[in-house]
Design a protein around this nucleic acid. Structure first.
Length: 811
RNA sequence: GCCGGAGUGGUGGAAUGGUAGACACGGCAGUCUCAAAAACUGCUAUGGGGUGACUCAUGUGUCAGUUCGAGUCUGACCUUCGGCACCA
């Protein structure tokens, strides 16, 4: 009998003792960097983590067996909001909570029998790591890629604290249920938009199409024109309204302007009569988030500011509105409105009784009033010198004409915004900046890093940033003039920590650099990066940005961090929905490992379906896998006895072995673990039959057993190591080469010819390989079944698919 | 709302435009047993016909289309899941 518990513990200890999975940087074999998105230190690993890790481990092991020097590191993403929530709720320090979770998760990860190199472990909340996160901040600051500007945050006026989106429920604070408002704070940004064009381009990397599309949409490139509309009454520094449009061809049809309610010019251009209404509207829009504001379901509304501006093309006098469907963060925070040719503007114009001026004629337009916006292309009318041009030509011509007028010109706009990295929270890497009364904003000297996160922190129920009240932390001296100064109390977005951890793995202990150039350039880019698709835009985007920024600073010689990306699916809780601790619907692998062993759990997770699909959790099939491993054990360990040898059986036997090796290798290469295991099950069922018959020679049987163990080794590492040893083979099975197949021996001796009449299967005939079309037809016509269908009917056409199928079309 | 996926037996799923349901789970029947469990063997999409080997029809979310042939390609729709910038 096979006892997984005992075997698994034994081999895990043995592998650790023998340092079987420690990676040697100097190994001359070709490198393979296999990486799974490191886990967040949320407490326990649930089955979803295993679903992410086990197949990836199997693939890494397969690559080792194919002769690669495989780097498969592991670490923890350890800063972030949940640790702080735990601190507030349970009175436990975030550090203690986080390190406790890491200890538990490490134990769980080790119980899986993975080939991680634990000597390279990285933990982002430890100062020997975040020191370098801060160092990157300073480098970006030096390159003018880190800067400060005002940006809105979710603000709870009652708690006097900034809330994460997660902490806002239906527009209310999750703690005290006060109405949350948008409040402007001076915050830190990274200049990610400078790389917009490059980030939208995924040339040379093998990523899922859907992720590339999501990232391109995230960048949101659009071509059009900038146009300046001169204000009737310039106010302060604002003498005109600048807009971006993708439809410069409709610019003669502008009948009003809409600017974002939070646009700074609103204060200055609003007339006294409109002040009250405008202020009330601004107040209301602070209570909405961007998704609500952009929703096309809700009716668009706005308020007249009392101000007017002029269309530079035809001098039309145009009223200026504010409307919350215009976002300050996109484009210039202002849009021109052409109700005749934009659905949203049309509805707005109808609502407020604004003129609708047609400037693009549809093919059969006769000058009648529009009942809805005409948003297609057409030929221009009421557009001065551009009349009768078509939209496409006019877009260019009008944009160029604006350049001549000095009122704008062709332009490219991106939806992408700069990356807001400021967090008004404790549990993150402090931003290494000091504010000095005489020198202003001063970066901390590199040699002074890390700016240590103080241990002492008072967590208020409201969630206010404890750093603000820690005088020892806040009060410091200016790095420039040495006078008293104050520290920045914002910490960095944890996405900054996870934007470079994969490079740290290449030189995990380097004390004087984030990584050594030689190491990072040996291992990077990551050959296969796996993780959830929920990171499609943020993490994956920021990591690409930082890589490109580091390249331009000369720290690395590659542009893309991840050569190939694969997204495994999501394991949903039983009954649907995401697994989460708060819902109490998580499934822990620990109980399953106790029940059937890690090998069975690994194989089960790979068998339940295509890896990129995920699905609702259900362990109904787990016992089946466990039984299969038991059968494999008996098959391999219990003696084989030759009985009556049979030549045909032996030929079939050898062919089955080679065909299985080919299919298993191919499936592994394509990350199709479910069909790989199905193939092995089919093969083991077949082997059991042959064993009963005893019709193949002993030495060939033994070869099949060896290859079976080797093919299974990446998936179920413990049982295979044990069987390998019992079979008297050299330790370790995980240092052996993956079996090779012989294409000739794998070739079938005969085929099944499927014969169809009008596309319906009517007969199946065994036939030799290499059948010609004529031979196939003759064969089909000799079948009685086929004759009964063709008799008395006229054959119109015969289609032959070589070696597979013959379709006879009759009338 | 916008963007991106996914829909196949009782269940998870398989299927280079070419035999739909591989491989499993579950169920049913049998072997073994005093009995049960375990293990093993067989059957298991639906409907009809036949004692039977078998045979006919229907069938991959819905409705159209392309094709000798569609789960696979095209269009529209329905359902469902993920992302939308402070959960990570």
């Amino acid at each position: 009998m096979y006892d997984p518990t005992q075997i698994e513990k034994k081999w895990q200890a043995q592998w650790e003792q023998d340092a079987l999975y420690l990676v040697n940087d100097d190994d001359a074999s070709p490198k393979w960097y296999s990486l799974t998105m490191f886990p967040y230190t949320s407490g326990d690993l649930h089955i979803g983590h295993w679903y992410a890790e086990a197949p990836a481990d199997t693939y890494a092991r397969y690559k080792r067996m194919c002769g690669y020097n495989v780097l498969r590191p592991i670490g923890f993403d350890a800063f972030g909001l949940p640790a702080e929530n735990a601190a507030i709720k349970r009175g436990i320090h975030p550090r203690e909570w986080t390190l406790g979770n890491i200890a538990n998760m490490t134990r769980q990860l080790k119980s899986m029998g993975s080939c991680y190199d634990w000597n390279r472990e990285v933990v982002t909340c430890l100062s020997d790591y975040y020191r370098w996160t801060q160092w990157f901040f300073l480098k970006l600051f030096k390159e003018n890629l880190a800067y400060r500007k005002k940006a809105p945050v979710n603000w709870c006026p009652s708690c006097q604290a900034v809330l994460a989106n997660e902490q806002v429920e239906d527009g209310k604070c999750w703690r005290c249920e006060s109405q949350v408002i948008q409040k402007d704070l001076e915050q830190w940004f990274f200049g990610i938009t400078k790389y917009a064009a490059e980030l939208a381009n995924h040339e040379g990397i093998d990523w899922p199409e859907k992720i590339k599309i999501m990232q391109r949409n995230w960048v949101g490139r659009s071509e059009g024109a900038d146009i300046s509309f001169l204000l009737e009454k310039p106010a302060k520094e604002y003498d005109s309204i600048k807009i971006f449009t993708t439809r410069p061809d409709t610019a003669y049809g502008v009948t009003f302007m809409t600017i974002a309610p939070e646009h700074p010019m609103v204060e200055y251009i609003t007339t006294p009569e409109q002040k009250e209404e405008v202020t009330a509207y601004q107040q209301r829009s602070r209570e909405k988030n961007d998704i609500e504001r952009l929703s096309t379901e809700k009716e668009k509304d706005g308020v007249f500011t009392g101000a007017y501006c002029y269309n530079p093309l035809n001098d039309d006098k145009i009223p200026v509105y504010i409307g919350d469907y215009v976002l300050i963060s996109y484009g210039t925070g202002a849009v021109m409105a052409v109700p005749a040719h934009d659905t949203r503007d049309f509805a707005f114009a109808k609502k407020y009784n604004l003129p609708i001026k047609v400037v693009i004629a549809s093919p059969n337009y006769n000058g009648e009033e529009l009942s809805q916006a005409y948003i297609e292309s057409g030929s221009l009318i009421n557009s001065g010198r551009f009349d009768s041009m078509n939209s496409e030509e006019a877009k260019k011509a009008i944009a160029e004409y604006l350049t001549v007028l000095g009122k704008g010109g062709p332009s490219v706009n991106y939806k992408l915004r700069d990356w807001l990295i400021s967090r008004q929270r404790y549990w993150g890497a402090p931003i290494p900046i000091v504010y000095c009364n005489s020198c202003g904003l001063v970066p901390v000297n590199e040699e002074e890093l890390p700016v240590l996160l103080p241990e002492k922190a008072e967590f208020k129920l409201t969630g206010e940033n404890p750093l603000k009240y820690n005088e020892e932390f806040v009060n410091t001296t200016c790095p420039k003039c040495n006078r008293l100064a104050k520290r920045e109390t914002d910490t960095m977005d944890t996405f900054m920590c996870s934007s470079w951890y994969f490079m740290r793995y290449t030189s995990p202990h380097s004390p004087d650099a984030p990584f050594y150039k030689e190491n990072v350039e040996k291992w990077m880019p990551v050959d296969l990066y796996t993780g959830g698709a929920e990171h499609a835009v943020m993490h994956l985007f920021y990591a690409r940005f930082l890589t490109k920024a580091l390249r331009d600073m000369g720290y690395v010689n590659f542009s893309e961090p991840f050569s190939r990306l694969f997204n495994q699916g999501l394991i949903l809780a039983q009954g649907g929905g995401k697994m989460s601790k708060s819902k109490g619907n998580t499934v822990t692998p620990d109980d399953l490992v106790i029940r059937v062993g890690a090998d069975a759990v690994r194989a089960f997770l790979m068998f339940i379906g295509p890896w990129d699909q995920g699905g609702e959790w259900n362990d109904a099939g787990l016992n089946g896998i466990s039984r299969w491993l038991q059968r494999i054990w008996s098959l391999v360990i219990e003696n084989y006895q030759e009985q009556t040898l049979n030549e045909k059986d032996t030929r079939d036997f050898v062919r089955a072995m080679h065909r299985t090796i080919a299919k298993v290798g191919d499936d592994l290469e394509k990350l199709r673990f479910n069909t790989m295991l199905a193939t092995l099950m089919e093969y083991s069922n077949y082997l059991n039959k042959v064993k009963t018959a005893g019709s193949v020679p002993y030495f060939i049987w033994q070869e099949a057993m060896k290859n079976l163990i080797l093919m299974l080794a990446p998936s179920t590492p413990h049982i295979t190591e044990e069987m390998w040893q019992i079979k008297g083979q050299l330790y370790s099975v995980h240092q052996q080469a993956f079996p090779q197949y012989d294409a000739e021996l794998a070739t079938e001796e005969e085929i099944t010819l499927v014969v169809q009449i009008n596309g319906r299967v009517r007969d199946k005939i065994n036939a030799p390989i290499g059948l010609t079309a004529q031979q196939a037809e003759d064969l089909a016509r000799s079948s009685e079944k086929i004759l009964s269908f063709t008799e008395g009917r006229q054959i119109e056409k015969v289609i032959y698919v070589a070696g597979r199928l013959l379709n006879i079309v009759v009338k």
